[in-house]
Amino acid sequence: MLSDEDFKAVFGMTRSAFANLPLWKQQNLKKEKGLF
Rank of each mutant, 00 (worst) to 15 (best):
K8G: 03
L35K: 09
G34K: 06
L35D: 10
M1P: 12
W24K: 06
Q26G: 01
K30G: 08
K31M: 10
T14W: 02
M1K: 12
G12A: 03
N28H: 14
G12T: 01
A9P: 02
L2I: 09
G34Y: 08
L29M: 09
L23E: 10
A19H: 12
A9W: 07
P22G: 01
K30S: 11
E32R: 08
G12Q: 05
D4Q: 04
F36R: 12
N20P: 00
F11P: 00
K33M: 08
K30Q: 13
K31N: 09
Q27K: 10
A19E: 15
K25G: 04
K25P: 01
F11S: 01
L23D: 10
L29R: 02
L2N: 05
K31D: 09
F36S: 12
R15S: 05
A17S: 06
S16D: 14
F36P: 11
A19P: 01
L21P: 00
K33G: 05
K25Y: 10
L21R: 00
K30D: 05
A9R: 15
K31C: 13
D4A: 05
K33S: 10
K33E: 04
N20L: 14
D4M: 04
K8Y: 15
L29Y: 06
L23Q: 10
E32F: 07
Q26A: 02
P22L: 02
L35E: 09
L35F: 14
K33Y: 10
G12Y: 01
N28D: 14
V10S: 05
A19F: 13
L2T: 06
S3E: 07
M13E: 02
F11V: 04
A17R: 05
K33R: 08
W24G: 04
W24S: 07
L21E: 03
S3W: 04
K30C: 15
M13Y: 08
E5G: 06
K25D: 09
D6T: 07
K33N: 08
K8N: 10
G34A: 06
D4S: 04
L2P: 05
K25L: 15
L29E: 04
E32N: 08
F36Y: 11
V10E: 06
M13Q: 02
F7W: 07
R15C: 05
N28R: 14
F18Q: 00
K30V: 14
F11G: 00
A17D: 15
P22N: 02
V10W: 11
L29I: 10
K31T: 10
L2V: 08
E5S: 08
